[in-house]
């Protein structure tokens, strides 16, 4: 399953940034775990795992993010 920046995550077309991955690439995560923190215009948001499994990080922290980007995948 992909973790994707959905269109309704925030209003407008601003770029956001992952401020920190809170799991390592290849770590086991459980559904609902906070796996990353993201920031948009000084507002911090949490990204939760949509399912349990092994996470593969696709986007490193501190890279600008646009809507529609896949930031990680989870092998269930």
């Amino acid at each position: 399953m992909q973790i994707k920046i959905e269109d309704d995550f925030w209003q407008g077309d601003d770029e956001a940034v992952i401020t920190a991955w809170l799991v390592d690439d290849g770590a086991e995560v459980a559904e609902g775990d906070v796996v990353a923190e993201m920031m948009l215009a000084k507002v911090q948001m949490e990204i939760e795992a949509p399912c349990s499994g092994v996470i593969h990080i696709e986007m490193e922290a501190e890279v600008p993010l646009k809507k529609g980007m896949v930031i990680a995948t989870i092998d269930q």
């Binding site: 940034v17 401020t19 993201m38 920031m39 000084k42």
Partner: peptide, 13 residues
């Protein structure tokens, strides 16, 4: 600190 607008050393997390 882990606040995005400041950049964060990865080893702090």
């Amino acid at each position: 600190q882990g606040m995005g607008w400041l950049g964060t050393a990865k080893g702090a997390i």
